[in-house]
C-alpha cells in the first residue's frame, strides 16, 4: 500500500471520474472499485469517502437516488450536469498537476 496521504487531495477527482464512467454508484461499490482498479494500492477509507460524497452532493455536483435492494435501501450517487462539467475541469487540473510533479521529480525526462 502506497502513501495514502498523497492520494488524499485527489479523492474528489477520483470519485467524479468513477461516476463519469459508471453512471451511478453507491458508497461501498466505490471503495471496492477503487481497490480493484488500483490492485489494492489505494484503499479509500469509509471515514473519508462519505464526507467527500456529501460535500460533492451539497455542491450540486452529485445527485442522489434511493432504491430498495433486497431488504435494504441503497443510496446511489450520479453526476449532475454541472458535475459532468466539473469532472472535465478536475481531470484537466489533475493532468497539469501530474505534469508539474513530473518536472519536479524527474527533470531529465521532461525536457521538451
Amino acid at each position: 500500500m502506497g502513501n495514502q496521504k498523497l492520494y488524499k487531495g485527489s479523492l474528489q477527482t477520483i470519485i467524479l471520474k468513477l461516476l463519469e464512467t459508471n453512471d451511478k454508484m453507491y458508497g461501498y461499490e466505490i471503495t471496492q472499485h477503487v481497490k480493484e482498479l488500483t490492485k489494492g494500492e489505494l484503499q479509500i477509507t469509509e471515514g473519508a469517502l462519505y464526507p467527500a460524497l456529501h460535500k460533492l452532493e451539497a455542491d450540486g455536483l452529485l445527485a442522489v437516488e434511493v432504491a430498495k435492494v433486497g431488504n435494504r435501501l441503497r443510496k446511489y450517487y450520479k453526476l449532475t450536469e454541472s458535475g459532468t462539467k466539473e469532472t472535465a475541469n478536475k481531470l484537466e487540473e489533475m493532468q497539469e498537476f501530474l505534469k508539474t510533479m513530473q518536472h519536479l521529480v524527474n527533470p531529465k525526462f521532461s525536457m521538451e
Binding site: 477509507t45 469509509e46 471515514g47 462519505y50 464526507p51 456529501h54 460535500k55 451539497a58
Partner: peptide, 19 residues
Amino acid sequence: KKFGVFGFMDIVESRQKQL
C-alpha cells in the same frame, strides 16, 4: 473497525455541516 477510532462521528459531522 474500518471506520477508525472515531467510528461514524466524522460522517455524521460532515453531513451536519453540509445540510
